[in-house]
Amino acid sequence: MDNMRHLIHLIISLLVLVLGVIGLKNLQITVPRMVRSGDSVLMTCNYDLEGKLLYTVKWYLDDAEFYRFAPKKKPPGLVLPVRNINVNLTISNKNKVMLLNISKKQSGLYKCEATEELPTLETKTDGATMTIIDVPQNKPTILVERQRLPLGETLRANCTSGSSLPAPVITWTLNGEPINNVTIFFKEYSRNIKIDEERTFSQSYLELSMTSEVLQEGKLLLKCLANIPLVYKASDEVEITEDEPFIASVRGDASPHSHRTNGCRPVSITQCLGLVTMFYILLTARSSS
Rank of each mutant, 00 (worst) to 15 (best):
P256I: 09
N26G: 00
L17W: 10
M210H: 01
L221Y: 06
S289G: 08
L221Q: 12
E188W: 04
G218Y: 04
R5Y: 11
Q271H: 03
E145R: 00
L221G: 01
L78H: 14
N93C: 02
V276Q: 05
L121Y: 12
L208N: 01
D236W: 09
T270Y: 03
S287M: 14
D196T: 08
V276Y: 10
G127F: 03
N227V: 14
E65P: 04
S268R: 09
N262C: 07
E217M: 03
P229Y: 07
E242F: 01
E207S: 14
I195S: 07
D243Q: 10
P245G: 01
P76R: 12
L42E: 15
V250S: 08
Y67A: 14
G51A: 12
T141Y: 08
R36S: 08
V41A: 00
L118Y: 11
K96N: 05
T284C: 05
P150L: 11
S209N: 07
P136W: 06
N86A: 12
R68S: 11
D39Q: 05
Y60D: 10
F186E: 15
G176P: 08
E177W: 09
D48H: 14
K124P: 03
L220C: 09
A70K: 13
E213S: 15
F185V: 05
V31A: 10
K94C: 05
V267F: 02
Q106V: 11
K194C: 02
D2M: 06
S13V: 06
L215P: 13
K139A: 14
G38L: 00
L155A: 07
L222T: 09
G263R: 10
E213L: 14
H257F: 03
L99H: 05
T141V: 12
C112M: 06
D253H: 13
I91M: 10
L80Y: 08
G38E: 04
E217W: 09
I195Q: 06
V87F: 00
